[in-house]
Amino acid sequence: MLSVESLSFRYPGSSEAVLQEVTLDIPDHGIFGLLGPNGAGKTTLISILAGQLHGATGRVAIGGEPLDTVRRRRPHCLGLVPQECAFYPMLTGMENLRFFGGVQGLRGARLKQRVEHVAGFARIEGVLKRRAGELSGGLKRRLNLAIGLITEPRMLLLDEPTVGVDPQSRAFLLDSIRSLAGTGRIIIYTSHYMEEVQALCDRVAIIDGGRVLVSGTLAELLRDGSGSMRLRLRAPLPDALAADWRTRYALRADGAAEYQLRVPAAMAVAQVIEAAQAAGCEPIAIDYGRRDLEQLFMQLTNRSLRD
């Protein structure tokens, strides 16, 4: 388990903290998603965990042992897949993999084996002899991922690894990352794509303005206890009924015959449906007690993730 306790950070010369009292518990199984809009502090948090930024206050520990101590003892326990394609464009894919393996102490048969393994994993065996700078965007992202995995790290930090790739490559990358989520490995995945996090992660923290707004399992976060209800009807509600529901259920029109309501008591859901049917507005779709991460973010911040 990776424990982040009261982590705060501000860049030198800046009066504003980029991270404020961030506290997270990240298990060593599954995939932990860090979701937030651009500028929320996701990359800063990843950079601190990766040892690229220092000067943060707070505590970061793995299994109770400070992260710095663990990394001193096992320097290559961490793999980073940054937003940028952080490799050498003038080197071939093979040369890049061999370099990043070699610079982390892999040699001989072990290096060869790891290069073959990660190239196979990322399905880039066929392009290993091409210069990295000449690869397509999707293949570059795969190479970027393969480099992050070359030392078989115990902790893998993926910082928006699908930025700028085509849907096909994104699907492949997400499948590949999902397959890494075995026990004994900490995987942190940052994104501002709600759909990716929702499709990939077991636990999620939503971060904004350097603060963790909410954190928990995906199921917990998607469960909506606020009584939020989405209703799509065959015809618009009559004015009288709509006025009544505005008072009772905080009705809000979301389209011609689509509505959002707040029905705190589950018992009342049936009454709502019956009243709509009686008014000749047969419900086509009902969504009660569930929300997506976008809605959760909106509930928490009154903003969209893409704002």
Partner: peptide, 17 residues
């Protein structure tokens, strides 16, 4: 400068080089 711009130096730093 390419190494710094592309994030390679940062990656190497994260690998304790």
């Amino acid at each position: 400068i390419v190494e710094r711009r592309e994030g390679t130096l940062a990656r190497l730093a994260s690998q304790q080089v």
